[in-house]
Design a protein around this nucleic acid. Structure first.
Lengths: 341, 341
DNA sequence: CTGAAAGCGCTTACAG
DNA sequence: CTGAAAGCGCTTACAG
């Protein structure tokens, strides 16, 4: 079947293409008999408006881009992206938008394509995952006035950028406070300095310590890089310093940490309390940590909703969404405590 | 900066928009001084052709869709999609195509969007992941003449469809033969009937048994559903039948199988040989099976290449790509045997 | 309520 | 080698 156009449908129904267009777009003021005549022709012959022509006329494509600089970091680290992509897809489907992928595997990729994405008008907006290398992109993105939402707190320009972030500081604060309430005093942290999420979690940890009258002990902080292996190594470095509890800023690293504890014959939770921060909106298949901070709402879906709000309202005022976290206490007490901070 | 058009660049350079278009598209027969004049204007003011207008004029969008019916199956099963998506993205980037996602989370999603994808001309082609529910889509896809490539062997219409598949039968045959050579005779299989990949792997297993003069023992076959947990349960059902080796048709299920063996105090590989089939093109972070069948080339990249070949050549003759598998022997012998079948 | 016409920003056959 | 013009398939202000 050849693709039909508005013109041809119009001819078949004995009306102009303008009228067919109006029928298709549910424009209200059309004589009922005309509307029906057109609808009948469409039902018989099938008609699907050409999306490209529509986009050109309306200057909007209904496509939003997922822009991920530095993908490699994710692929070899944790399943963040794997959870994010289906979530964004789902949210887009619900709003009749199509997600396009701009995952950059090399600096080369980035250079070559960023300008094109920015200027070719093929997307109505962008969801950008935060990365240390943000800074290169942000000024241009801001300048271009292309609607976009950052996933994660930006390290710069926060007042001029819309973003969706987890309450990393609050979650880490809850986690640490939980450990303090259990009576622990030598609470270690496995963290890193790869993104603002880790920064904020470290800050929440320190804040809880300080408020409890404890001073931060540098030897109880070990850095990883979000991989399981780095969690393992970090825990091994911590063990000699005899922590009685550890807060791990990512679930994947906590798998490694747990293994290191097992290897050392340290039983969790009997000999050592462990709380991890779960990045995944979707329930992870295996959450190894006994107690975990996680986030009930998916940031990806929030980002889509925020982006579409910006696109549709035309109001570019920056939105800052901080999604609440909750503490899931497993093992002994088994209760689920939920709380906003 | 306002977006410039061909017309405006033309005005600035004192030429027609046709000439600017030719310069931008590297049309050869242009007087050098004119070309330079135009290029200078473009360099000064910046110009990025509007992708949508271009698509309309050329009747090609340079977008290809990744069409995944029944996503849920993947999300809760194994990391197949997580590996596939970045791979497809990468291949698209390399060819200056943009991947769009059509992941369907519900039957509703599918119904609503499939027709639109098919007819709206927003994609130049589709990569479709094979699924038991293919049959609903295939006839329409074929009818519509939209170029597409199936990832996996179709259960129907194979002669009229282009597809990229792993050599599942060959790989399973190799795996089983390997176990036979090691002297095993009671070789169990953990498989399922969820897709043709599993079917073909089961067939390769049976073929190797038959050629070795063994008869297939139904009690040595257990079904799972690609999840780790199902592998665990399947292994538990097999243990009473005292296999001396087991071939697991997916890596994820083999993790579960391994756990069941551990629980039962059966040591791998000392007391029981285990070979798994690794679906992941990217080296999996943790391949638990000691010996594994895997595939060096990513099917996603092959699918992109095949699809673009169809699109660009205009030749719709079905392509059937069977990617070779190799047996990676770990543990004791440690050698890597590679072979086509 | 409906149609003719202009416009969205490109490409390219055609004429010169 | 270059430009005027038609065309891609829609939308919508304008006129009636």
């Amino acid at each position: 079947m050849a693709k039909l156009t508005l013109d041809e449908i119009g001819r078949l129904a004995g009306v102009s293409r303008a009228t067919v267009s109006r029928v298709v777009n549910n424009y209200p003021h059309i004589r009922p008999e005309i509307r029906e005549r057109v609808q009948k022709v469409i039902a018989e012959h099938g008609f699907y408006p050409n999306a490209v022509a529509r986009s050109l006329a309306l200057n909007a494509t209904h496509i939003i881009g997922l822009f991920v600089p530095n993908v490699v970091r994710f692929i070899f680290a944790d399943p963040y992206l794997s959870a994010l992509i289906p979530e964004i897809s789902r949210a887009c489907n619900a709003h009749d938008y199509t997600p396009a992928l701009f995952l950059f595997h090399s600096q080369d990729d980035e250079q070559k394509q960023f300008q094109r994405i920015l200027h070719a008008s093929m997307v109505d907006g962008l969801i950008v995952t935060a990365d240390r290398r943000d800074k290169e992109f942000m000024p241009q993105l801001i300048d271009r006035r292309l609607p976009f939402v950052l996933l994660g707190r930006p390290s710069k320009f926060s007042d001029r950028i819309s973003y969706v972030d987890s309450d990393n500081r609050g979650g880490a604060y809850m986690a640490t406070q939980h450990l303090l309430k259990l009576g622990h005093r030598r609470i270690a942290i496995i963290t890193n300095s790869l993104n603002t999420a880790a920064d904020d979690r470290t800050e929440g940890y320190r804040q809880a310590l300080t408020e409890a009258g404890l001073t931060f002990q540098p030897e109880l902080l070990a850095e990883g890089d979000f991989t399981e292996l780095s969690g393992f190594a970090a825990m091994q470095r911590l063990i000699p310093h005899r922590p009685d509890a550890v807060f791990v800023v990512s679930d994947t690293m906590s798998v490694g940490a747990l293994r290191a504890l097992n290897n050392a014959g340290i039983n969790v939770p009997r000999d050592m309390a462990l709380v991890s921060f779960d990045d995944l909106p979707v329930a992870a298949t295996t959450t190894p940590a006994l107690t975990t901070v996680r986030q009930p709402l998916g940031n990806g879906a929030l980002a889509v909703a925020t982006l579409l709000d910006i696109i549709k309202s035309g109001d570019k005022a920056p939105r800052h969404i901080i999604a609440p976290t909750e503490l899931i206490v497993r093992a002994s007490c088994g209760a689920v405590q939920s709380g906003l901070t």
